[in-house]
């Protein structure tokens, strides 16, 4: 059985990856949307996005929309692959237990 991805397995990072990979390829979510969808706090979300970015699973872009700074997070191809493998492993664990 494949190993679970330790970077993705943390609950909030799992929710972040689930949200980003539910979007069409190349589309991202801004920080506010991501916070609302995952139920995270500002500081928490920033730290976990940084961990995912360091692993190469997400790309972070910062831009100004009008006068407001906007951070957009997008899943990378590596991140989508890792998330798909992680989900497959979770399904294997459930199937292996006969549930």
């Amino acid at each position: 059985m494949a190993e679970l991805d330790e970077v993705i397995h943390q609950p909030l990072r799992l929710r972040i990856m689930a949200a980003l990979t539910a979007l069409p390829d190349g589309q991202g979510l801004d920080f506010t949307q991501l916070k609302k969808l995952t139920g995270a706090t500002d500081g928490n979300l920033g730290a976990h996005i940084e961990t995912l970015a360091k692993a190469g699973y997400v790309a972070v872009t910062k831009a100004f929309v009008g006068k407001k700074p906007q951070t957009t997070v997008t899943s990378t191809a590596a991140g989508r692959g890792a998330f798909a493998r992680h989900v497959a492993t979770l399904r294997e664990i459930i199937a292996g237990s006969g549930r």
Partner: peptide, 22 residues
């Protein structure tokens, strides 16, 4: 490694977020 109960909870969590995104 996690057990099947935790794996089910993780999948349920994923489904919940995917529904919210949709």
């Amino acid at each position: 490694m996690i057990d099947s109960q935790q794996a089910s909870e993780a999948l349920a969590d994923i489904n919940d977020v995917v529904q919210r995104v949709r």
